[in-house]
Simulated scan of single mutants.
Amino acid sequence: MEQPFTESEQAYLADRVAHYVGEVVERVTQVICEAEAAANADFSAQGFTFAEHSPANADYLTVCLMEELFRKVHSGDMAMAELMLTMMAKQEGISLHVD
């Protein structure tokens, strides 16, 4: 049975969760930057040079992480996956058509 919370308790909980989400995002962003730098140092040590951007750039690493976390959360439940994608699209103002 779920505990009923007052409006002020709900506001507090929402604020604290947002705070901790922000901390996680900050830490993960730092780890991604560190991974990009390590990959580029590795590539450079092997004599690789890239005309445009490194294959292990921060954007690519971020998308790879998002894919892995998405799979982890929906765990093969396609209805959950569809719901998650729909919710993310709506937050960005994108309309999705899912068959």
Rank of each mutant, 00 (worst) to 15 (best):
I32A: 06
L83F: 09
S54H: 00
D59S: 15
H97E: 15
I94N: 06
V31N: 15
H19R: 13
M80A: 14
Q91S: 13
F43L: 09
V98C: 09
E36D: 03
D59N: 14
T86I: 05
D15K: 15
L61P: 00
L69F: 06
A39L: 05
P55F: 03
V73M: 12
D77E: 01
H53Q: 11
E34D: 07
A58I: 07
R27Q: 10
S8L: 09
Q46H: 03
E92V: 08
M78P: 03
K72F: 15
T86Q: 06
T86F: 00
T6N: 05
Y20C: 02
F48H: 06
D59Q: 15
V24N: 07
T29R: 09
L83N: 10
Y20P: 02
L85H: 00
P55A: 02
V25D: 04
H74N: 02
G22M: 01
F50I: 02
A58V: 12
D99F: 14
Y60Q: 14
D99G: 15
M78T: 13
L83T: 11
H74M: 05
M87E: 15
L83H: 12
I32K: 03
V17T: 06
T29M: 06
E36S: 09
G76C: 03
E68M: 10
V73Y: 13
S44G: 07
S95I: 14
P55N: 05
P4V: 12
M80Y: 09
L13A: 09
A38M: 02
F43Q: 01
E92N: 08
E26I: 00
L69I: 09
M1Q: 13
K90T: 01
G93T: 04
E67T: 06
V17Y: 09
G47L: 04
E92F: 08
Y20K: 08
E68W: 12
A38G: 04
V31G: 11
L96M: 05
A89G: 00
A56E: 09
V25Y: 02
M1H: 11
V17I: 10
E2Y: 04
A89Q: 01
V98L: 12
I94L: 14
Q10S: 13
I94A: 05
Y20D: 03
F48S: 09
F5R: 12
V25F: 05
E26D: 06
M84G: 02
F48W: 08
T86A: 03
T86W: 03
L69M: 13
A18R: 10
A41R: 08
F50S: 05
N57Y: 00
I32S: 03
F50V: 00
Y60P: 01
V31Y: 14
E82G: 11
T86Y: 05
E9T: 06
E82I: 13
N40H: 12
E9R: 02
C64K: 07
V63M: 05
F43Y: 07
S8A: 11
V63F: 03
A35F: 04
A39Q: 10
E9H: 02
Q46G: 02
H74W: 01
V98G: 04
F5H: 06
A14I: 07
L83W: 10
